[in-house]
């Protein structure tokens, strides 16, 4: 076989292999949903994150808006610090939103669900005017609520529900109720 034909075949082979890899990455996997270019990081502290992993989903109203970027144990606060990367286009989340760790299905993956808060803002200021009346000062124009941005911390968090703990609480509750009943019988 001539060298030229061999080389053409090898070219096709390598191109086909790369195309297949590309298809696996773009069409089969979640690479196309990664938009890590202009995201921003927010942090939250949890008492218990068991089951949550780096790259777990961060959702709001059930729509994925980011992923978990880093999980470390903060030895000063004795709790877990979770850094989430939120995609850049979702830049209007109120800064008093809360974060909870949920489980998809009964035994499925853990993910973080965000719930929007009411929104606070700096632009309204209460002040006493000369006559001693309370007055609402509105800085007209650039009055916007405060949003989550790079480096903000989500204060309101709810921990992961751990099945064993839940069952444990359940059982101890029953037991203590039984104890009470027995006490009253006596």
């Amino acid at each position: 076989m001539s060298t030229r034909i061999t080389e053409i075949w090898v070219g096709l082979f390598v191109a086909g292999g790369i195309a297949a890899l590309f298809m696996l990455a773009m069409k089969v996997s979640n690479l196309s949903t990664y938009k890590s270019d202009q995201g921003y990081d927010v942090t939250a502290y949890f008492e218990d994150i068991s089951g949550l992993k780096v790259r777990s989903a961060v959702t709001m109203s059930g729509v994925r808006i980011g992923r978990v970027k880093e999980i470390v144990f903060d030895k000063n606060r004795l709790s877990a610090r979770v850094t989430m990367e939120i995609e850049g286009e979702y830049d209007t989340l109120p800064d008093d939103s809360s974060a909870s760790i949920y489980t998809a299905g009964l035994l499925g993956e853990k993910y973080i669900g965000l719930e929007p808060g009411a929104g606070s803002s700096d632009c309204e200021e209460l002040s006493l005017d000369d006559s001693g009346e309370i007055k609402l000062d509105e800085k007209a124009g650039d009055c916007k609520p405060n949003n989550l941005k790079q480096g903000s911390e989500i204060k309101l968090t709810q921990d992961s529900l751990v099945l064993e703990k839940l069952i444990g609480q359940f059982i101890s509750k029953f037991l203590s109720e039984d104890d009470k009943k027995e006490d009253t019988k006596k």
């Binding site: 390598v14 086909g16 089969v28």
Partner: peptide, 16 residues
Amino acid sequence: FISMPLLAAMFSAVGV
């Protein structure tokens, strides 16, 4: 060494 990952990728892609 080069062929194997390319072939495996094609196998998976065609399998999907």
